[in-house]
């Protein structure tokens, strides 16, 4: 990847952001907003919201996040292997894949991957 592609990514991002920004902020100049208490309330099917909206959430999301981070490293290590599998030794990758499957099996056997 050279300078051209790096700049290309920036130009694409800038074009997308400009279009998005224009679509979001130009209507703001043209249309007058009338704020009412009901309108500014979070949507809960017309009921008055109870308590804070930043509720506590399940710890299980954290387990999935940790599993994702760990196994994504394995996937990232598999990328150079996939490009040059005919040139390099396979053993480390096979060990990594085997341990990943073992860990998933352990998780599954312990019931951590079940959604409660």
């Amino acid at each position: 990847m050279g300078l051209e592609q790096g700049l290309g990514i920036i130009v694409f991002f800038a074009l997308g952001a400009i279009v998005g920004y224009a679509a979001e902020f130009i209507p703001r100049l043209l249309i007058k907003s009338k704020k009412t208490a009901e309108k500014m309330m979070p949507f809960e099917s017309g009921e008055d919201p109870v308590g804070t909206s930043r509720v506590r959430f399940r710890i299980q999301y954290y387990i999935f996040a940790v599993a994702f981070v760990t196994f994504d490293v394995v996937a990232a290590i598999a990328i150079p292997w996939a490009v040059g599998w005919n040139l390099i030794v396979w053993t480390p990758l096979l060990v990594l894949f085997g341990s990943m499957l073992l860990v998933i099996g352990y998780y599954a056997a312990k019931g951590e991957l079940e959604w409660l």
Binding site: I9, F12, F13, A14, G16, A17, V19, G20, Y21, E24
Partner: peptide, 9 residues
């Protein structure tokens, strides 16, 4: 805005 920009990239 970021959603549109990143999907466009």
């Amino acid at each position: 805005v970021l959603a549109v920009a990143t999907s466009f990239v």
